[in-house]
């Protein structure tokens, strides 16, 4: 009974041992996100998929907020619901949209079951990931590393923001590689479009 009640309301303190349990908010938000993702993937009509994808990003933003990552939630709101939807709508406006009789795409059963097995296989690795707020998480079990970054960052890089320093200085080559990928994507788009500049 106590377990069921704890499951329904969960705990508000990160240090509490019951944080690993799924709360009612979490469960309903996760169900919402999974349903919208499925509907986006299966919708026959492209515009319908775009619209339902907007609903998906609503759920994701609420989920990020619940996990106390307001910066990620704000990015999700601005990029996913705002920019992506507008970009996709602009693309649809420049192309033609075909009317369909059926609401959903037909599912290829062998392919779906193969994907299901892959998903189940990947799910097995979930056991090794520490629970949210768990004291065994690397960030807590190795406080020396965290402290090293906090104390040494300025002396080594002269960057005041530690997160920025990790992204652009300590992992500079990594970020550089990511930037190369983005530029390569842009150049590939130009080649495909037979254009020399984006205009």
């Amino acid at each position: 009974m106590t377990g069921a009640l704890a499951l329904a309301t969960g705990s508000l303190t990160p240090a509490s041992p019951v944080v690993a349990q799924v709360t009612a908010v979490e469960a309903s938000l996760l169900a919402f996100v999974v349903l919208t993702a499925l509907a986006t993937a299966l919708a026959r009509d492209v515009l319908a998929a775009v619209i339902v994808f907007g609903a998906y990003s609503l759920g994701m933003a609420a989920l990020y907020t619940f996990y106390r990552a307001p910066d990620v939630a704000l990015t999700e709101a601005a990029i996913s619901a705002g920019v992506t939807t507008v970009l996709l709508l602009l693309t649809l406006a420049k192309t033609t949209r075909i009317d369909h009789d059926s609401v959903f795409e037909s599912v290829n059963l062998p392919a779906a079951s193969a994907a299901g097995f892959l998903f189940a296989g990947l799910l097995l690795t979930m056991g090794d990931i520490p629970a949210i707020g768990s004291p065994d998480a690397p960030v807590w079990s190795n406080p020396d590393v965290t402290q090293w970054y906090l104390t040494e960052t300025y002396a080594q890089t002269h960057v005041e923001n530690t997160v920025m320093a990790v992204l652009a200085a300590f992992r500079g080559f990594d970020t550089f590689g990511e930037a190369i990928v983005v530029f390569a994507g842009g150049i590939a788009a130009l080649i495909v479009l037979h254009r020399e500049v984006f205009a």
Partner: peptide, 9 residues
């Protein structure tokens, strides 16, 4: 929090 879950449902 429970009410938020209700709104999500």
């Amino acid at each position: 929090l429970l009410a938020a879950a209700g709104f999500t449902v």
